[in-house]
Amino acid sequence: MDVEQLEKKAIEMRKATWEMIYRAKTGHTGSDLSCTDILVALYYKVLNQTPETFKSENRDRYVQSKGHAVEILLNVLADRGYFPKDDLLTYSQFKSPYIGHPNNHIKGIEMNTGSLGHGLALSVGIAKAAKMDDKDYHTYVLMGDGEQAEGSVWEAAMAAGNFKLDNLTAIIDHNGLQITGKTKDVMNSEPLKAKYEAFGWNVIEIDGNDMSQLVDAFDMKSVQNKPTLILADTVKGCGVSFAENKAEWHHKVPTEEQYKEALDVFDKELEERK
């Protein structure tokens, strides 16, 4: 897909996620919307992985450490054909495998995640294994900025730099908000760029809701002997004006009126891109 097609796909995925959260009456709405562009860039442009190659030893790996944003991940996987879209009608229902965090009983999901601070360490292990086994697959991991308060993140960051894992790319969904407020007020982890660079990382700072910047960043991710961090500045609730930059939308379900209002916006945007 080119950038315009990816932008349109991101609107479609925001709409599908918005509908699923409204239908299920649960979901991390603001978090899903902030990282939608990142997942669309990965799954429709970057990842060397398809439903047919998901069990291949040389497939690229993706770990969603920011596991609470599972709704957008599930919609992207369904749209890519990893499982039928109708399966998501059971999301968060009794005995459904489609639950509030990534579940590796579902095709397309590498491992269970959502206990924040674990995804980077797991990804370091996957990338290190690729080096040891002389495999050329790349590992990607998405974290939240609130997650950077976890000490295990920094142990993993140090290890990645120490082992010179140039086959590892981490992305931070840097929207400045978490469930209890602004990240700088809850537990200030800035300056993230300088800290990761001090651990030996190549850091690319971009607008994470700008598809062309995302595509360019993924294209230039590889620096010899260094893991890469894409520090993606995003807007929590991106795409729904009344939810943007509001911590209360970290985990909030739209009312019927809000649901219809945002749906009208998505439909109008899609119509304009026909």
Rank of each mutant, 00 (worst) to 15 (best):
L168M: 09
L168R: 07
T169I: 14
A170I: 13
A170V: 08
A170E: 02
I171F: 02
I171W: 11
I171S: 03
I172F: 09
I172A: 13
I172R: 13
H174W: 13
G176N: 02
L177M: 04
Q178S: 09
T180N: 11
K184H: 04
D185L: 06
D185H: 03
D185A: 07
V186E: 00
V186G: 07
M187V: 01
M187C: 11
S189R: 11
S189Q: 15
E190G: 01
E190M: 03
E190N: 06
E190V: 14
E190T: 12
P191A: 03
L192A: 13
K195A: 09
Y196Q: 10
Y196S: 00
A198C: 08
F199L: 11
I204C: 08
I204T: 02
I206C: 10
I206F: 08
N209G: 06
D210W: 01
M211K: 09
M211C: 04
S212K: 15
S212V: 04
S212R: 14
Q213E: 15
L214C: 01
L214V: 13
V215H: 11
A217V: 06
A217N: 04
D219W: 10
M220N: 15
K221Q: 15
K221I: 14
S222R: 15
V223C: 04
V223Y: 14
Q224K: 15
Q224S: 15
N225E: 15
K226C: 11
L229C: 11
L229R: 02
L229V: 12
L231D: 01
A232Q: 11
D233I: 12
D233T: 13
T234I: 00
V235C: 07
V235D: 00
V235M: 10
V235Y: 09
K236R: 05
G237D: 02
C238P: 01
C238S: 10
V240T: 03
V240N: 00
S241W: 12
S241Q: 14
